[in-house]
Write a protein that binds this DNA or RNA. Structure first.
Lengths: 206, 206
DNA sequence: TAGATTGTTAATCGATTAACAATC
DNA sequence: TAGATTGTTAATCGATTAACAATC
């Protein structure tokens, strides 16, 4: 309830703040400020302070924010103190790339399941994972208690897969298929479509 | 000038409208309406009409929009009536996946160059492309007149690569490295970071 | 202490929605 | 014609910014 009150657009910025803080930590920087973060990220200092103040008082007047402390707080707020298991649906180029992707390590996620409906792929290894038959997906995901999935199947099948994921108890979907999905309102969906992003930029090109 | 006046947030929705229209076309649908698009995409009908009206009068009262005509108009507005060449920097897992990605076909883009600084990778084939030495990147991109690039190198090197791309005349960058880039204001940057997107959703999970 | 920076309120800015005349 | 849907204006809603007292 209290959570619901915080605008989604603010939630979306928290991981970006966290990413910057973690880079500061790596670089040995102990203290930062809204001004410092603003210079790095391009958001206004006022906005950064306001966003953070939604969740508590993390800073110190005159000093700023302790990098490690703030980053710990943000990880707690975002629920990534644990490592979440993630299922991948589709073992084509995109699904395989996600299975190999090293960017999830230390950011709260690990791919533990991958599915495909192509008999030629089922049983094959992709990274550390063995491709399983989509026919067993609902049961396998439900039994494993996996709550997050990434869809990397052709656009025509994405909605069907989404329906199955919902049935399996998945609550968060990262969709790489270039279609809008229709899901119950307690299921969250984020979209990644590089062509769409490039098209946004070509508008400005000549 | 007139272009600059249109909010970026509207430009970002145009490719999504286009994506839906192209799926309608494939399905043989001739006519749509703001209400129909709204049902598919989740944006309000009023917003869709208002967005489109920024660029002209594409519809007909009482009828709606002709799918093929509107999609043609949007392609023109977004400057994707041509096919844009795109350079990929980094031939690791992400770069390779982008080189193989089939989602760019018919959406206005083709990868034509790929670069890496690892001698073990230079000269190797990735998809149709041969990996070239990053040392020659600035010159090669400039000579080829390529204006769009995707960065798929480790975070530590992304800014350096971005600087080189700017020097080479690139005006649009799709950045897969999990860092904010600093570029001149006539250069456009979009970010794709799946971990960030997943973290946004885990906020809502328990 | 003096300087710096937070957290927060009020003011501004911009985006979305509702409503409806125009018209196909 | 009657019904439907556009394009657009005005009203609403929400997000960002400016400013500053509190305080480290």
């Amino acid at each position: 309830m209290a959570k619901k009150a915080i605008p989604d657009i603010i939630i979306g910025r928290l991981p970006i703040y966290l990413r910057a803080l973690e880079r500061m930590q790596q670089a040995g920087q102990k203290i930062t400020s809204s001004k410092d973060l603003s210079a790095r990220l391009g958001f206004s200092a006022a906005q950064i302070r306001k966003d953070l103040s939604q969740f508590g008082e993390f800073g110190k007047q005159g000093t700023g924010y302790h990098v490690e402390y703030l980053s710990k707080q943000l990880r707690a707020i975002l629920n990534i103190n644990k490592v979440w298991d993630v299922a991948i649906v589709g073992a084509g180029d995109v699904g395989s790339a996600l299975a190999h992707y090293k960017g999830f390590v230390n950011r709260g996620f690990q791919a533990t399941l991958i599915f495909d409906n192509d008999p030629a792929k089922i049983g094959k290894k992709v990274g550390n994972l063995i491709v399983q038959d989509t026919a067993e997906m609902v049961q396998t995901i439900r039994e494993a208690g996996v709550k997050i999935a990434m869809i990397a199947v052709p656009a025509d099948h994405a909605q069907e897969v989404a329906d199955q994921l919902v049935e399996a108890g998945v609550k968060a979907i990262l969709n790489y298929a270039p279609v809008q999905l229709s899901v119950p309102e307690d299921v969250h969906v984020e979209y990644i479509d590089p062509a769409t992003r490039l098209q946004k930029m070509t508008y400005y090109l000549e």
